[in-house]
């Protein structure tokens, strides 16, 4: 399987996204922005369509539009503090509507679009792999260097602001990184399932981790395992990689819930 160049590219891309996606997911979940990844993937799709219509590189235009979408959502989140889910809904529908209209303008787009919607191992081009590598590197530096202010920001924005954290700047950088990660992950897992790779490992980690560092490490470990096993299964049984990875992660989540319940039941029996 790894003898094929496209599979090597898919594993590299999947591995890098499998690290940065779940890491981002932990922070997104704790900041109650879980749907942001889903929204940005729809916005990014509109960017891909726009790139095709304007004869630009779709990967790059999708990337740029996702980053801009992230910034717009962050700005709207500040305006609609009480209804924080509202900007997400507005941007998601706007992105999808724009993508559908732009797609209709170019008839031969639908085939390449299905690879964006559901992910495709062969869809990972050299340009996309380079984009993913840059995003993963930028993301890792971001999360390692800024881990302390990010922890404080994630726990509570007000105390972070008073404690000297530049909340506005950090939130905007975080939104940009979210847009970058979503756009980079799209070719591997697809628009519809990009948030599964970001959210599912984090939801497993938040259930079982004893501390914050442990949560981050468990999320990355789960993400990588899910991506590699999903890509392998997808190659052998010829299924879309996005769906396969998401289903495997879902099985992991169900297993984590079941094991946690068993442990709790056993502990209760010990005390009774």
């Amino acid at each position: 399987m790894l003898g094929y160049e496209f599979m090597q590219r898919a594993f590299w891309a999947g591995g890098l996204i499998g690290i940065i996606g779940p890491l981002l997911g932990v922070y997104l979940m704790l900041r109650r922005q879980v749907l942001m990844a889903d929204t940005l993937s729809h916005v990014s799709l509109a960017g891909v369509a726009l790139g095709s219509v304007l004869h630009l590189n779709p990967a790059l235009s999708g990337f740029a539009v996702a980053v801009i979408g992230g910034l717009v959502i962050e700005q709207l989140r500040r305006s609609y503090r009480t209804y924080s889910e509202l900007p997400v809904a507005i941007i998601m529908t706007s992105g999808l509507a724009l993508a559908v209209v732009l797609m209709s303008l170019k008839q031969n787009l639908s085939k390449s679009f299905s690879s964006y919607l559901f992910g495709s191992i062969v869809a990972v081009s050299d340009t996309q792999l380079r984009i993913i590598a840059v995003v993963a590197a930028v993301g890792l530096v971001f999360f390692i260097v800024l881990r302390r202010p990010l922890y404080n920001l994630t726990f509570d924005e007000e105390t972070a602001a008073i404690g000297g954290v530049h909340v506005g700047l950090l939130s905007f950088s975080f939104a940009v990184l979210t847009g970058m990660t979503v756009a980079a992950a799209m070719p591997v897992v697809g628009v519809l399932l990009v948030s599964a790779l970001i959210v599912l490992p984090a939801s497993i980690a938040l259930r079982i981790a004893s501390g914050f560092t442990a949560a981050v490490l468990i999320a990355i470990g789960t993400g990588l395992t899910g991506v590699f096993s999903g890509l392998t299964a997808s190659y052998y049984i010829n299924t879309p990689p996005g769906g396969t990875i998401a289903l495997i992660l879902l099985v992991f989540l169900l297993m984590a819930i079941a094991i946690q319940k068993l442990i709790r039941r056993r502990n209760r029996k010990k005390h009774s």
């Binding site: 704790l30 260097v145 800024l146 302390r148 202010p149 922890y151 404080n152 994630t154 726990f155 404690g163 000297g164 980690a205 938040l206 981790a209 004893s210 501390g211 914050f212 560092t213 442990a214 949560a215």
Partner: peptide, 20 residues
Amino acid sequence: GFPSKVIELVRSGCYQRLGL
């Protein structure tokens, strides 16, 4: 639901003085 140990949270109080 914040996945943090008590000591991790209290240590974060020192972050402003420690910087990055």
